[in-house]
Design a protein around this nucleic acid. Sequence first.
RNA 1: GCGGAAUUGGUGAAGGGGUUAACACAGUGGAUUGUGGUUCCACCAUGCAUCGGUUCGAAUCCGAUAUUCCGCCCCA
Length: 423
Amino acid sequence: MIQKPKGTYDIYGDKAREILYLKKLITSLMDNYNYNYVQTPVFEASELFHRTVGEETDIVSKETYDFKDRGNRDLTLRPEGTAGIVRCFIENKLYVDASPLKTWYFGPMFRYERPQSGRNREFNQFGVEVFGSCNPMIDAETISIVYNLFKLLGLKELKVNINSLGDLESRAKYREALLSYFKPYLNDLCDDCKQRYAKNPLRILDCKIDANSDIMKNAPKISDYLNEDSKKHFAEVQKYLEFMGIDYVINDNLVRGLDYYTHTVFEITSEIEGFGSGNVLGAGGRYDNLVANLGGPNIPGVGFAVGIERLLLALEAENININQEEGIDVYLFATSENERDMMFSLASILRVNGFKTDLDYNLRNFKNNFKHADKLKAKFIIIIGADEVNSKCLTIKNNQTKEEYKVEFDNLIEFLDEKLGDE
RNA sequence: GCGGAAUUGGUGAAGGGGUUAACACAGUGGAUUGUGGUUCCACCAUGCAUCGGUUCGAAUCCGAUAUUCCGCCCCA
C-alpha cells in the first residue's frame, strides 16, 4: 500500500470545508483592504531562496526540498512566500504601477522538517507583501490585517509582539555591540549560540536555552542602538497600532529567523494553555533592502505570513467551529427504474435554477432514501413515482415539518423559491 | 539533526503465542407492499502497518523499515 509522503496530509471532509471557509473570509477581508491576489510558482530557482531567506538560516541550510529537473536546473519547492512574490515584483516590473503595490497570496509551502503538532512538511500559508512605501502606516496596517483576521474568526487568546531591528546603520552598530559584549562569555553560551556568534549574532537573543541567564538579560538592547530615523519610525508604528486599538507588547529579543528584516518585526502568538512551540500563528515585518538585494530597484517592502494549519489548531483549541456544513435544498428519488430518467432531468432543472440539489443514484428503498436525505440535511424531498409521472403533479415533502405538498410540474420552481426564500 | 509513544475492517476499539479475530457505530439487504428515522434478523477483517526471524503454531515474542502522534532545535 502506497502511503502519503511523511509530513503531508490529505484535505477532505470537514477540513476541506474549513479551509475553503478561511479562504473565502480572507478573500473578502483582503478585498476590504484593497490588496491584490498574486499567485507565483510553487518551485523557484534554488538560488532565489539562498539570496532572500539567507544562506545561514535553518530554513535554507537544512529544510529545503531541492531537486534537479530533467533540464538539470537547480530548483527548490518554496519554503516561504516572500521570495517568490519579490521575484515576481521585480521580473514583471510591477513597480511601474501604482505605489504602494499591495499583494496577498495563499498556498502551499514546503519544509523538510520532523513533523509534529502544527508542523507539516507541506503546509499552507496566507500572506501579504506591500511594496513601495516607507510609511509606518503600512507596518501597522499589515499587523492589523493579521490581528483583525484572528479577531473576526473569534480568537481571544492572542498576543501581539513587536520589535524594531532598525535600518542598516542601526543594525550594524548593534551587531558590533553584541559581538563585543558576548566575546568574553563565548564559552558560557550553548553550542548553537557559538555558531550564531560567528554567523548572525542577533539570533543569539532568540536562544531558548540561555534565555534566562544573566548574560542574556544584561545584553545590549536594540532599542539603545536605533538612530533617530529608526526610533521615529518605530514610534509611529506604535502610534498607529494604538489608533486601531491593537494591544501589543514590545519584545526586545524578537529578531526573527529570516535574514531580510529591517525596522519593524512582529509575531502574533496564541496564548492558549498547552499550545507549545507551534504557537506563532502569524509573523512578519519590514524588509527595506530585499528588493534591491535581489537586483531590483531600491524599493521598500513589508509583509507577513500566517500558518493556516496552526490557525485551524488555534480555532479548535478555543472551541471555535468554522465548519459551515449547510445541507442541500432538495433531494430527489424515484420509486422504480421507470421514473429515474425523470428524476435525473428534474434534478438538472433544479440545479440550473440555483437550488442545491442531490439525488438517489443507487435506487435505494424508501427507508434508505429518507435516511440518506437526512444525512444530506435536505430541506425538501421530491418523490417521483408512476402516479407523479401520470398526473404531472409532484409530491414534495418538507423534511423539517414533514408536511407534504402536491405541486404542478410547471409550478415547481416558483413553489421552492417561495418556500426556501423565507430563510 | 535528537528523543518518547503508537499502528488491529469504512470508524471507535477488545484480544499479550493455539485454529471461526469480541463488541459497538456506520454501510447493505430483509421483516415492511408509496412515507422512513423505533425494533428485530442477515451480511460486512482468509486478516491485525510492511518485510524478515523464533516456533509444531504468531495479531500476540524478536529485529529492521515505513507512517502517525508528541517533545527538543527551528519555524508559520
